[in-house]
Simulated assay, not measured.
Amino acid sequence: MTRISALGHHQPEHVMTNDDLGKLVDTSDEWIKKRTGIAARRIARDESVTDLAAAAAGKALAAAGVGPDAIGQVIVATCSAIDRVPSIAAQVAGRLGIPSAVTFDLNNGCAGFTTALATADHTVRAGAARHALVVGAEKMSDVTDWTDRSSCVLLGDGAGAAVVSAAEEDHIGPVVWGSDPSRGKTVRMLDAWQPRFSQDGQSVFRWATTELAPFARQACERAGIEPGELGGIVTHQANLRIIESLVRQIGAPQAVVAQDVVQSGNTSAASVPLALAKLVERREIPAGAPVLLFAFGGGLSWAGQVVRCP
């Protein structure tokens, strides 16, 4: 049995508003809000992906009351890390004094955190670790083309983390995950050594709003939860219009719906843990309530599960 024992999150201090972006490209606050729902995003000036990840992970460890020696696995989900070796996960373990865990980075685009959460869940269930640390961390500003108004208005920086622990009751449901690699070039990084985020926004919007809701409902079904019983829904914070469409199709009228995209923008693999950690911190979802986590993006990939709110 497994559970999320604690969460943590971290965002840079600098806020970039839509009006700020209007000084860089031909856009406006009205244009951005109408198409994406985004009002602002955080931009890391002096912090790296490792800095963001370690800050969020440290908060999660402290909240869980778990010592570094007890962590048997560290996974960092990221698609924006410039460092390849050592991994961001290894660097985070070093920062936090975790002595001998298996550490690796996982890149599944915006679905990275929910994929990593399932991986850690399986590790703990198999008895290979008693506690695992899972982080979603992105510095998307490093891979943003600030001359492309179709993408630069979307992206932000941040990190969220969770401690997955062995438990006496099951609080993490079975994962529903998959991919459609035939559409892999819809969301991509251009130029491997000087990467820049690129996507066909209209294709992604159509895919997310017409094809993904059945997978989200399937995650509820596998967890033995009716959508109407959900206390919360935390989807990838890509676009407010996508979030609202998915929630309508899932059919959970009583659920608290994360809308962190409004103030944080699209933080890729960090968006689900960042939004979930904020909801828990503000106690907008009661402890023990079922929450659907569902993320999607580059690959094209998706991954989701129902968890009990820590």
Rank of each mutant, 00 (worst) to 15 (best):
G224M: 09
K59V: 09
G231L: 05
E47G: 07
A167H: 15
A277C: 11
T78Y: 01
R283S: 09
P214D: 13
D19P: 05
I32W: 07
S182R: 15
P227Q: 09
R183N: 14
L293T: 11
V187C: 06
V261F: 03
A89E: 02
Q199K: 04
L230C: 02
Q199N: 07
A277G: 07
C79Q: 13
T115Q: 12
I71F: 11
L155H: 03
P174C: 04
L133H: 02
D145N: 13
P195H: 07
N266F: 05
R283V: 02
L154E: 02
E169V: 11
Q202M: 11
H236C: 09
V25A: 11
A219F: 00
M16V: 14
S179C: 06
H236S: 10
L293R: 10
A303S: 11
V74G: 03
V175P: 02
K59W: 01
R84K: 15
T103M: 10
S268N: 12
D191Y: 10
V25H: 10
G58Y: 01
R3P: 07
V204Y: 07
V272M: 00
V135I: 13
L155Q: 04
S268Y: 10
R3D: 07
I71T: 15
D105Q: 10
I4V: 14
G297Q: 02
L117W: 09
T2N: 12
A213R: 08
P227F: 00
I71M: 12
A62M: 14
S271V: 00
T210G: 08
G127I: 13
L7W: 15
S48Y: 08
H10Y: 14
A116C: 08
K59T: 11
P86E: 04
Q305A: 15
A111T: 01
A167S: 14
F215G: 00
V234N: 03
A116M: 07
I98P: 06
R149C: 09
G228K: 06
W302Q: 00
A270T: 08
Q202Y: 13
A252N: 04
R45V: 14
A57E: 03
D142H: 03
D83Q: 07
V247Q: 15
L300T: 05
W193E: 13
S28H: 12
I233G: 12
P310H: 03
A116V: 12
A166Y: 06
I243P: 01
V153S: 14
V175S: 08
R222I: 05
V204M: 08
P290G: 04
L96K: 02
G297D: 05
L52I: 02
L279M: 01
H236P: 03
A277R: 12
L300V: 08
E244H: 13
P214M: 09
V307T: 02
E211N: 12
A93V: 14
V153E: 15
H10G: 11
L61C: 01
S28P: 11
R42P: 06
S141T: 14
A56K: 10
V262D: 08
V92P: 01
K33Q: 14
R308W: 06
C79T: 10
S87H: 04
G112L: 10
L240K: 11
Q202L: 08
I233T: 06
G298L: 07
F113P: 00
I172C: 11
I82V: 13
F113M: 04
V256F: 09
G127N: 01
A56H: 09
S151H: 07
F197G: 06
V291H: 02
L293W: 05
F104D: 09
Q263D: 13
